[in-house]
């Protein structure tokens, strides 16, 4: 029996993490794996910190990823990447959207927005940062940031591209399909590699 793999998707309520995790979990189911997904929502949809945990393998028991066990963290926002960094495995990789969304303590001036990327690079080697908003704009729809990031995730998952595209087609509304497919391919075609930022 293969081991259970863990992907943590983090972001801010309203960024589209839920759609991204839905596509991901459907892809995993499609290739015949057992999948469990845990999503905490409720008050979180009001601009709070949101997290989706996706676990997959031949057999999965708990729907929750223990701290320090995520193989991949896909972060839609920099501060959230830092917040959840303790969930990353030592050899795990963290993919980060270079976007800043100020939380209320920063907005009201009670706290500073930290240098998240610097903090993360000091603690882990496998960091990749992309500007998904720019890629989404280039794909023709700023709202496809989540699918750009999904494409980036796919780059590290070794699953046939057609399965992803087919699943996106089944999941997103048809009038946004072309923009989403383009966004996914843009994410997948990311040329930056891990570890480039280490020196």
């Amino acid at each position: 029996m293969g081991e259970t793999k863990n992907i943590l998707i983090v972001g801010v309520g309203g960024q589209g993490t839920i759609l991204a995790s839905r596509v991901l979990s459907n892809v995993l189911q499609k290739i015949g794996l057992e999948v469990k997904v845990s999503e905490i929502h409720g008050m979180a949809q009001r601009g709070g910190s949101v997290v989706t945990q996706v676990r997959y393998g031949q057999k999965v028991a708990s729907p929750i990823i223990p701290e320090g066990q995520a193989d991949i963290i896909l972060a839609f926002e920099k501060l959230e990447a830092l917040r959840w960094l303790t969930y990353l495995k030592e050899e795990g990789i963290i993919l980060i959207n270079d976007q800043r969304i100020d939380p209320m303590p920063v907005i009201i001036g009670a706290m500073e927005y930290p240098d998240a990327l610097d903090n993360i690079r000091q603690r882990t080697r496998n960091v990749l940062v992309i500007d998904a908003l720019k890629a989404a704009q280039e794909a023709g729809n700023v709202k496809t940031v989540n699918i750009v990031l999904l494409g980036l995730l796919a780059k590290f998952m070794n699953i046939d591209q057609d399965v992803w595209l087919e699943t996106i087609e089944e999941t997103v509304p048809s009038k946004f399909l072309q923009a989403n497919l383009k966004a996914f391919k843009a994410g997948l075609a990311t040329t930056e590699n891990l570890n480039l930022n280490k020196n």
């Binding site: 601009g47 917040r83 960094l85 303790t86 939380p103 303590p105 920063v106 009670a110 500073e112 930290p114």
Partner: peptide
């Protein structure tokens, strides 16, 4: 790894409550 509040490990990380 210890069980801890993720915020506690980075005291400089502002909380993000719903608004």
């Amino acid at each position: 790894t210890k069980v801890q509040d993720p915020c506690a490990s980075f005291p400089n990380v502002p909380v993000r409550p719903p608004v």
